[in-house]
């Protein structure tokens, strides 16, 4: 899933400094799962913003609403009636950065991102998430025991660990596993370590963001 985290409240308060009434919109997709922008997080942020502005003697009306998803126009369309009637100064989106962009595309009102969209990843345990994919657009992990050296090696090395690998840790931080050490262990476990002996060829990054913003068209699904 897309993993995100809330921006510092101070930064958000600066964004809304001139407003009296805002619509804070959560998303029930990925950011609900990673506890960054679901109904609950919308409630917490709304409360924090109200507390801050009450304290400042300049109350902010925060209307809370959470959409099924913000990355599909049909759900974003649901904001239409609310925005038409209620005199909002701005929309604050608690989705990944797709959400605010979809809202901005649809409605002539200022939109602010409440989250920093951080990575594609998964939960290591409750409350801990890590990056697993860089969406390079051409998956090669089967060559590496099912582990991704592009996203998970600090240098995206394709031919083994750099000289900084020590005690299974990356030189960048002891918090980062040396993915190449894990790949090596996994290939030994699978009895395929000799596959790592071949020079892995230079990668074609044109399928990645380097080829420009990407689009997928599926004619079979079009309505």
């Amino acid at each position: 899933m897309v993993v995100a985290e809330r921006k510092p409240i101070e930064e958000i308060l600066a964004m809304v400094a001139d407003f009296k009434k805002v619509l804070l919109v959560g998303c029930k997709g990925c950011v609900t799962v990673c506890c960054a922008g679901g109904t609950k997080e919308v409630g917490i942020l709304a409360s924090a913003l109200r507390i801050a502005r009450k304290k400042a003697g300049n109350p902010l009306e925060v209307v809370e609403h959470t959409l099924e998803r913000q990355c599909d126009p049909e759900y974003v369309d649901q904001l239409g009636p609310m925005l038409q009637e209620n005199g909002f100064d701005a929309v604050l989106s608690m989705a990944c950065s797709v959400g605010p962009q979809f809202i901005a595309k649809k409605y002539p009102i200022q939109v602010f991102p409440m989250l920093n969209t951080t990575f594609i990843g998964g939960a290591l345990e409750h409350g801990v998430w890590a990056e697993f994919c860089q969406s390079c657009g051409n998956c090669i992990i089967h060559n590496f025991g099912g582990l991704c050296p592009i996203a998970r090696c600090s240098k995206s090395l394709m031919n083994g660990p750099c000289g900084g690998s020590a005690n299974k840790q990356c030189e960048v931080s002891p918090e980062i596993d040396c993915i190449w050490h894990l790949i090596y262990d996994r290939m030994v476990e699978l009895g395929q370590v000799e596959k790592l002996r071949n020079v892995f060829p230079i990668k074609d990054w044109s399928t990645s963001r380097d080829g420009g913003p990407r689009k997928i068209v599926r004619e079979d699904l079009k309505l």
Partner: peptide, 20 residues
């Protein structure tokens, strides 16, 4: 080449890859 990086067993393999 860093003979002292981990995993040690892979270090010679990495050298071999560079030679290839």
């Amino acid at each position: 080449a860093n003979p002292f990086g981990d995993p040690f067993e892979f270090r010679v393999t990495r050298l071999a890859k560079k030679i290839d």
